Amino acid sequence: MTPDDSVLPAMGEAPEGVRLQKVLANAGVASRRVIEQYIVEGRIRVNGQTVTELGRRIDPESDLVDVDGTAVQLDVSKRYVMLNKPTGVVSTMKDENGRPDLRRFTDEWPERLYNVGRLDAETSGLLILTNDGDLAHVLAHPSFGVTKVYIAKVDGLVTAQTISTLTRGIELEDGPIKADKARLLDASRGSSLVELTLHSGRNRIVRRMMAAVGHPVDELVRRQFGPLHLGALPAGKARELSKIERGALLTLSRQDSAVPATSDRTQASDKDPIQEIE
């Protein structure tokens, strides 16, 4: 018996798994011939290990695959949607008080989608809807430090000194906080536009920070969440993420291998306590 005989299927048995080339071709990565070249060039990993053999088989339901360091979505049951939430809508799938909620934006998709994090009713902008509980946990939980970018229209003319204060840090009633980045976009006619980048998941943090430095927020929009940008998506419209956007999100969600195995990870929940409100 050769050293490899022990791992070969017995006579008459079908080999387990599906050829990697077929799986990735079905996922739209490239043709099988091109994928074989990727394998030869060492550009594909399965569960973090570089694949070197062309005959590699995988289980699409459990194995994690990336190409050039970008994760590939193999589970087609998972749905990822970007919404530009308008003001006046609460970030829940069913509001007990009868206020406008997110259900009106999910009719197009058969899956039961949930929002990742929350925006308060008077805040507009980028909200992610998905049925992927693992990804929702990483994106929404403040311990993972996923950054978000906001543009706030505030009262008064913001100075360079105020911008510096926001990045150095201020003290709020629930502890100190500082912006990862802050910049003044415009200041005229008694109001200012300020861009803030934060990774905090604390409730209404932008509004509280700007009020603390003497510039209450009049309007607030979230323009970016992790690697996703709102772009030109109109308010009140939703769209599925592109293959590139999905890859970026999945790559981010897999970067931290020490995610605790809690019930939060196995099922996205509309009542999930990890969801912040901005």
Rank of each mutant, 00 (worst) to 15 (best):
R208G: 02
D75V: 13
A248Y: 00
G169D: 02
A160Y: 10
A25H: 02
S263H: 13
L233V: 07
V149Q: 13
L119S: 05
A261H: 13
L113A: 08
H137T: 07
D174F: 02
G28Y: 08
R223W: 12
A27Y: 00
S143K: 15
S77I: 01
A179P: 08
R222T: 03
L220M: 04
A27D: 01
D95A: 10
A261P: 07
D155N: 13
F225W: 15
N203M: 03
A211W: 03
N26L: 14
H229L: 14
R207E: 08
A232T: 12
G17K: 11
D63Q: 02
V206F: 08
M1N: 13
S253H: 11
Q224I: 07
I128F: 12
G55W: 02
E108M: 08
I128R: 01
L193S: 09
F144T: 02
L102R: 08
R79Q: 14
K85Q: 13
S253L: 10
N115R: 06
I163Y: 11
R222H: 06
M210E: 00
P100F: 05
R208N: 01
P227M: 01
G12P: 05
A211S: 12
G231R: 11
P234I: 10
Y114C: 06
L157N: 14
R246C: 11
T50C: 11
N47P: 04
R103K: 13
R222N: 04
E13D: 15
A71V: 12
R19Y: 09
G42D: 10
E219F: 11
D256C: 10
V65F: 06
A121D: 07
Y38A: 05
D68G: 09
V90Y: 04
L129V: 00
I205S: 03
R168Q: 13
R265F: 03
T159R: 11
V34S: 12
D75K: 15
D134E: 15
P60H: 04
M93E: 06
L157R: 12
V76L: 12
T106A: 13
M82R: 07
F144V: 00
A136M: 11
S191T: 13
L230M: 08
D186K: 15
V46E: 01
P234E: 15
G17P: 06
D5G: 07
K85D: 11
G175M: 04
A268V: 11
Q73K: 15
S31L: 05
R56G: 05
L241K: 01
M11Y: 14
G175A: 04
P110V: 12
H141V: 04
L196P: 02
E276G: 14
G133N: 01
N84S: 08
D95P: 08
R254H: 06
E36R: 13
D174Q: 05
E96S: 14
D120L: 06
S188Y: 09
L249T: 07
L64S: 12
V146S: 05
L230F: 10
V149S: 11
P15C: 01
R32F: 06
L184D: 03
G226D: 05
L230V: 05
L139K: 00
R208H: 06
E195K: 07
D270L: 07
R118H: 04
V23F: 01
A14C: 03
D270V: 10
G88N: 07
Q255P: 00
Y150K: 08
I244K: 15
K237M: 13
L139F: 00
S257W: 09
S91R: 09
S164K: 15
G69P: 01
L126D: 07
Y114L: 07
S124R: 04
M210W: 00
